[in-house]
Structures are given as C-alpha cells and as structure tokens.
Design a protein around this nucleic acid. Sequence first.
RNA 1: GGGCGGAUAGCUCAGCUGGGAGAGCACAGCCCUUACAAGGCUGGGGUCACAGGUUCGAUCCCUGUUCCGCCUACCA
Length: 898
Amino acid sequence: MSSAELSKSYEPRLVEDVWYRAWLDRRYFHADVNATPVPFSIVIPPPNVTGSLHIGHALNSTLQDVLVRWMRMSGRNTLWVPGTDHAGIATQNVVERKLTKEHIDRHALGRERFVEKVWEWKRESGGRIIEQLKKLGASCDWDRERFTMDEGLSRAVREVFVRLYEEGLIYRGERLINWCPRCHTALSDIEVEHEEEKGKLYHISYPLSQDPKVRLTVATTRPETMLGDTAVAVHPLDPRYKDLIGKTVDLPLTNRKIPVVGDSILVDLEFGTGAVKVTPAHDFSDYEAGQRQSPELPRIKILNDRAEILSDIPDVRAGTIKLIAGKPVKKARGIVVELLQEQGYLIKTEDHGHSIGKCYRCKTVVEPYLSPQWFVKTAPLAEPAIKAVEDGSIRFIPKGWENTYFDWMRNIKDWCISRQIWWGHRIPAWYCDNCGHITVTRTDATVCGKCGSGNIRQETDVLDTWFSSALWPFSTLGWPDATKELAVYYPTSVLVTSFDIIFFWVARMIMMGLRFMQQIPFRDVYIHALVRDAEGQKMSKSKGNVIDPLEMTEQFGTDAFRFTLVAFAAQGRDIKMSAERIEGYRNFANKIWNASRFVLMNTDADFVPNNDIVVTESSLADRWIVSRLNTVTRDVQAALAEYRFNDAASALYQFIWHEYCDWYVELSKPALKDQDLAKRMCAQTTLVMTLERALRLLHPIMPFITEEIWQKLPKKVRGDGDSIMISSFPTSDSTYIDEAIEQSMRLPMDAILSIRNIRGEMNISPRERVRASIRAENKDILATLERTAGYVTSLAGLSHLAIALDVAKPEGSSTGTIRGAEIYVSSDQVVDKDAERDRLQKEIAKISRDIDIFSKKLANKNFVDKAPREVVEKDTAKLEGFKAKRDKLEQSLRILDA
RNA sequence: GGGCGGAUAGCUCAGCUGGGAGAGCACAGCCCUUACAAGGCUGGGGUCACAGGUUCGAUCCCUGUUCCGCCUACCA
C-alpha cells in the first residue's frame, strides 16, 4: 500500500554521503555566471590549510550554508566560494615540526627546498578541512575553490603590493616592531595577545653624575633593559625633579652617562617614583619618547633576534657582559638584579601585575625589536572604510560590533606586513647592490630599475598572511582581470564570521575592496558567536575540552548537529556546546522521520493531491494546520532575512513537533479512516502537502533528512523537481492565515487538554474510555464544539460526548473549565471524592489569583483612564470570564460535598 | 585605565517597540494507544541579581551597586 517503506528510525549514515554525492554529481552547487536571477554570493572565511575542522568552523559554515541553500531555493543566482588560506607562520611551524621529527633542520635544507616541502605537505594533507566541510553538507561551488597562494591569487597580491608601493602607501623603514623570537619574525600589533601576569616592579637608583649623592630612582618591570637606557625621563612640571632636567646620571653597570629629560607624555606624575628609564630600542613608549626628544635619543639594542643578550652592548662594563652575554632575557634579568643589589643600586622590589604580549601562533613572549620592515600606511585606506560603515553601506549584525570596528579603525596604526619566514608571498622588491635603489615590480626583476645593474637581490621577507586574505572577496573572483564573475558576484552579499577576526580580516577587506574595486566587498557582516564548552570555557586542545564536530555528526547525524548549531546561534551570546544538546535534536530528526513514516503509510506512491476537495471539504483541523504552516513560513522567512537563525530554528521545531506531530497528525487520524472518500482525500492531501512544505522550509538547516524523505513522497506531491535542494523555498500566503480558525481550534484543543488533565488527576488509565459532557456558554461556542466533537472524542479517549447549552453536571463527575465552556468527565470507576475536591480547590485558588490581579488593576482609576482602551476592555472581559468560571467551580464543589 | 555583553525554572537559554513569566533538557506520575519508548500524556518548579527612579503599570526604559565573561590600552 504505502508508497515507500521507511525504516523504524532515521539512520543518517545511510543517507548523508549518498545525497551529498548526488548533489555534487548533478552540479547543484555550481553557480552559473550567465544565469539571470539576482545574484547572491558569499565568500567563505578561508580556513587555514593546516586546520582540521573545529566547532567554530562548523558553526560558521553551517550558517553560511543555511543562507546559501535558502537563497538558492528562493531563486537567486547563488554562489558560495570556498577555499583555504596558506596561513604563513602557522603552516611553516607545522612543517618545521614535522621536519624536526625527521631530524631535518630547515636552514640546512635551504629556502627553496623547504618551500617545496611545504607545498608537498599542502598537497598531501592540506585539503583535509575541505573534505570535512563536505561532511557537514556545505554546498560550496567546489569548482571555484581557491587557495591564497595559487597562481591567480598570487598575481592579485603582487598587483596590490606594487600599486600601493607606487602610490606611496607601502614603505620600508626601520621601526620598533613586535618580534617573536621563536617564530623568528615580525608580527603586526594585532598578532600579539596580551595576558595578565604577576611580575615584579624593581626600583633602581641612578646616581647623578654631577653629584653622586643625589640619586634618581626609577621603577621598572624589566631591569635588564637598563643596559640599553639612553635617558631618564621626568615630568617637566615635577617639582621634585624639574631642576635635574639637562643634567646627566651615571647608568649603573655601564660607563654610560645619560641625560635627564623632560617628557610630559611618557611620565605620569602619580605613578611609581615619577622618574622613568628610557630604552628606545626595546619599549614602544620609550621608542616614541626617544623620537620626541630633540635631538632624538640614541637607540641601543641589547638583544639579538632570539631574545638573547648581545655580547657587544656599547658602554657596558666587561665584567657585566661576561656574565650575561648570550643569556636569554629572563635569565639575564636575574643576573642584572643580583648585580644591582650587590652594588647597592637596587632600592626595593614589589609585586606588580602587568600584561605581557605573546605570539598568537606559539605563545612565546614577544619582544619589541628594532628592525627594518615593510609597512602599509593605513590612515588613507581607513578613512573611506570608516565612512562605508558610518553611512550604512556596510551593516554589522549585531550592530554593536560597529563600535569595535570604529574604535580600531579610528586609532589604526601602520600595518607591518613583512614576515621573516619562508612560506608565503615573497615581497616583490629587489635591492640594488650597486646604487641602493629598491625595484618593485609586477614581474620578477633581473636588473635594477634605476641604474640597470644586474647586481640585485630580492627581498627575503614574505607578506603577512592577512595581506592576501584582505583581497579574498575580489581575488577569488578573478581580479585583477575584469572577469564576468566580478561583475556579477561582487560585491558579495554577506560575510559570515566571528568577532575575533574583525581587525585581522574584516576591516582589511573593507579597506582593500574600496581601494581596488571602488566598491564595498560585502553589504552585511554577520558576526556569530564563539562556541564554548558546556562550562563556558574556550575550547582548546590543551584543556582537552574540544568537541570534535565530526564525532558529533558521526554520533547524532549531520542534520541534528547542524540544527543544534543553528538553534543556539542567538545573536550576541556565546554558544555553550555539549553532546547532550545535540542529542535532543537527534530526537527531533527521528520525530520528523516517524511522522513522515506515518504520512507515507497513508498515501500511495501514485497519490494525487486533490486541491479541489481541500477547498470544499477541508475540516477545521486542516484549515488550522494550513494557517499555522503559513504563519511559520512567514516567521522563518523573516527570521532568516534578519539573521535570527535561532528564531528560524525554534519556529520550525515548534511547528513540526508540537503542532504538526502532536496535534495535526492525531487530529487527522479519524478523517483518514472516514467512510467518506472526500474526507479521506482531504486529510491525506493536507497531511502530505503540509509535510512537503515543512520539509522545504527545513531543508536549509537539515539538508540530508529532508532530501531523503522528500524523495520518498508521492511524485505528484513533489511536483516536477528532482531534488528538494533545487525546489522552491515556500512563501507565505497570508490569505491562508486565519486568526478565527486558530481561535476556533483552541476550543477543542483546550477541551482535550482539560479532559486529559482530569484523567491524569483522577488516575484514570489511558486505555479506559470515559464519558464527557460539555456545557457551552453560548451558541457560537456550542456550534464550534459540535463541529469539532470528533477531535475531542478521539484525542481525549471518550466513549461518549454530549454538548449542549444546558447540560446538568452528571452525578459523580469531575469538572474542568475552559474558556467558554465547562466540562464534566465521568468514568465507570468510582470517583475519588477527595482527589476531585483537591483538584477543584486547586483550580479555584489559581483562578482567584487571576481575579485578584485583574480586580486590582481595574480598580485603579489611573489605569482605566490612561491605559489604551483595548487593553482595558480586554482585561475587563478577562476578569468577567474568570469570575464566571470561579462561580461554576464553586458550585461544583458544593455539589460534590452535598 | 577605557569599552562591550551577561545576570530570568535545578541546567542551557528565548522573551520584538513596557500590559496576566516561556522553551528545551533535567525531575515526578501514568502509559510499549496500530508514525515514533530517541516516544506519548500529565504535573511540580521562578520576589526575572540588588537598590532607587520614570510610569496608571517595569523582566523590559533610566541611574547606581554587586558578581561573571570578553575586547582594548605603552602606567614604567
């Protein structure tokens, strides 16, 4: 009979791979650049090639997939560009570690061979994350997969670099930058993570050269850097010290005399001793103070690029050097402190908490380090990027993130883009050994652009990984060529990402997009939450609290996992994830499966939905579920349009489980067995058509199960489509949304709930039929109840139901009240009078509370005068209803006791 | 030091522009009722962090306080 046999429970592993392959084979993910509909495009935030899929990626790509599938079903020319990032430092570290295990040193290997090894590694294991995205059902256009170091993108990088250089927006210079001594490279400001640590504040006294008895005490957390001091700064208005400005002090442990200078910016009168040692080569604020002084203070380096003490620091006494040369910073600190103490310069040591910068890739303590680097002058780029958000061309969702963006952009510093590593886009600059000119070109230079000498060397540095990602929205579409893809899909529609890369990536894409495309790169920026563990801790390998997304899909099915992510993706709040939470949605998937099983048991494969019959014959329940379906369709559309993913998910959950399954399927059962063919047809049609529409609504979130079931639906129900993926997303028809119908359905539903409640309270077995009488308050209610008597009989398990305007309460029956009617339930069992009394009293107490609240409210003259009239009228009606109910209940109680 | 967000049922969280507090999970009771025990039905459980203010009326708006997150910053 049935059109398709479904197994008793949903088994994801049997369907997921099959459908994903089918979608791929049929090229549903592929976007046709020549298609005419309005485009909708997204570029994926490219995961690192080194990465394996973590839960953050899972959330990120699921949300994008929901949008993309939704838009594709809505008829848009939809493109989702996938790809990966070469992740300079991270990848180099991975391959270096691998080589170390094989006892190979990268320096011994040499640059070229090392880079070749990285490519090898990339080919072998770099694509893993892409395969994992496919497991999640991501409907990316894999034909357009890009890599930040593939040929086209490298060309874009070079073009941008050369143009910015020619426009004077890229420059090279020796500056103090953040240096990771382990990765052995410069880092940009935002690649440094700050952590609060307990340290010590050392007070050191510097004797005045002119009068050694006078001592200037400075406070520092890094005493070892004193070897590089080139001044002591005091506040020019400080009465304690201002007379000392212009004099010199003898720097302990050295033969250096350094000036006392006045600097109102560096020195805070309130803090410490009021005197600050100045080490321009090893501290950012000192560096700036050094530049402020006139003449500029000398910079004395004391560390090498591995953060070890140099052996040739100027002026330092030989004995001191001997003790500390080559020692790492921390060790040197101890030695310096000891020396200072021995020689009587250390005044005191106190505990002090301060924040310390660490490399975002390897957590090594970062050193401010003086070295020649390449920079992007950001101010001119930032200005239009700020404007684009200010004037609403680009929207952040939630809006609060705009402040974060503005904050950073308005105080933006020049971006250090050179990295002293091997893996990445090598900077296209050649230094001439003959004339010193720097040649920057699109094609590799062989001779100096100025003097023509062939004696040139290419810059060894590579570009910051984020330099290439900044171009992603247009480089992936073929820029710098004027491709059709760019014309059609740029600007992209929305960027979905997490807040931690607003600076790294989002801001820079906006700057670069505006500069090189003269257009914003995306209209909306949707910032989603961070996924944490069940305790709210950030997931990390070291904590061992990582939830592996693939394990979750394995265990509960991809759809359940996706639904969980979407359901928890409320704006502005982090997601706490745990297996139990996914389990609930696995059950949801199974619920859908079983409801579908029921539907399929009741419709043949050649079933033809009969809409004419539905028009004439549809029952109240049919019209009710259709009304609800159209409401939920409207709500889901609205929620998705505003990126309220969780609202879309819960609307669907609520509708499918608690309205369609719990009510409609049950309500339809009598009609499905009705003698009358028309009635049967009508129920069947409504049942299956509602399911079909619900599946389409759900498909963007749960692609696999919806496709699997949809394919088993009768052909005529599916229409002409070959796949739910390319069927149309339902739209809401407001003519089917009928408030009156939904109100009318409340009556039998309330009656059913009330009778079930009584059964429960009276401890009547579910199997036992009971008799019920309902007294309707008026004719309208009577009519509705009569019309829906079948529902009540069926769902409340009645053997007999009487409805009238003047039913007398049967002897020994229990009473329930609903809005507009009173219900008496009798069972063949002897009624337990005590239980019945309890129940009635409880109901009376409850309703009395309501009466209390509303009486008070309506007795308040101010309320009656000032509140809107509808509110007052509504409340008055409610109060009267409550009072009438209470009277009836009290009457029942008297009868019971009589 | 600045900024942002959070505080609602035992847990995780919804609550749109102020009008009788919601869901899921967990818990208790009854049910293997012919789609589903990964299920059904019923039920218990909340001075909406604290103190003020605005209002006829505040979980919602304003101010302050406390406690938790997070971002940001060169207090040596």
